[in-house]
Simulated assay, not measured.
Amino acid sequence: MTFTFRILTSVFLGCSVLLLGACMDNATKASEMNSEVSTSTISEQANSIVVLTVSDFNSAIQQNNQNVQLLDVRTPSEFSDGHIEGAVNLDVNSNSFVRAIQTLDPAMPVYVYCRSGGRSARAAKIMEQEGFKTIFDLEGGITAWTAQDMPTKK
């Protein structure tokens, strides 16, 4: 009985080791695949929409002042109350927003802002879906802009 018990124990342990090794290999492969997918997704998102602080947003539009596509996606009345100089008003809530952004160059960077960041984030997603390659969104919107005493134009 002891000899049979030893054989069965050895067979059981051998099978367990093989099974455990196969599971670990599959888990490692699954983990590597998930890591590749996550990294790919993050880098694609990072290349499309970038949220910039007020100072970084200001520096970027100042450096590219001749070729900047600067969009204020608030309502026309909000825009008339004050906006960043050089901005074009394209209301993201307007039915014509998608048609209006199609007049822009999707290969050139676009700088977008709203009052506090919600509408500009939505506008950035729409622009991304419409094929725009690089979109910079002002963190905190014009509220953050004016809080840092940045100039606006009426």
Rank of each mutant, 00 (worst) to 15 (best):
T2W: 11
T4P: 03
F5G: 13
L8F: 15
L8T: 13
V11W: 11
F12T: 12
L13G: 09
L13M: 13
C15G: 13
L18P: 04
L20R: 05
G21N: 08
A22P: 09
D25P: 00
D25S: 11
N26V: 12
A30Q: 09
E32F: 10
V37P: 00
V37A: 05
V37F: 02
V37Q: 03
S38G: 14
S38F: 10
T39V: 07
S40C: 09
T41F: 08
Q45N: 14
A46H: 05
N47W: 07
N47S: 15
N47L: 15
I49R: 04
V51H: 06
F57A: 10
F57R: 04
F57G: 05
N58P: 00
N58K: 01
S59I: 07
Q62E: 15
Q63P: 04
Q63C: 11
N65G: 03
Q66E: 07
N67D: 11
N67Y: 08
V68P: 00
V68T: 06
L71D: 01
V73K: 00
S80Q: 03
S80E: 02
S80D: 05
H83P: 00
I84P: 00
E85C: 09
L90R: 07
L90N: 06
V92T: 07
V92F: 02
N95A: 15
V98E: 11
R99K: 09
R99G: 14
R99W: 10
A100R: 04
I101L: 02
T103C: 05
T103W: 01
L104P: 01
D105L: 01
D105A: 05
A107G: 10
M108P: 09
P109S: 14
V110G: 03
Y111V: 13
S116L: 09
S116V: 14
G117C: 09
G118Q: 04
R119M: 02
S120F: 05
A121P: 04
A123T: 01
E128P: 05
Q129A: 13
G131V: 11
F132M: 14
F132N: 13
K133V: 08
F136R: 11
I142E: 11
T146W: 02
A147R: 04
D149K: 08
D149Y: 08
M150N: 02
M150Y: 03
K153I: 12
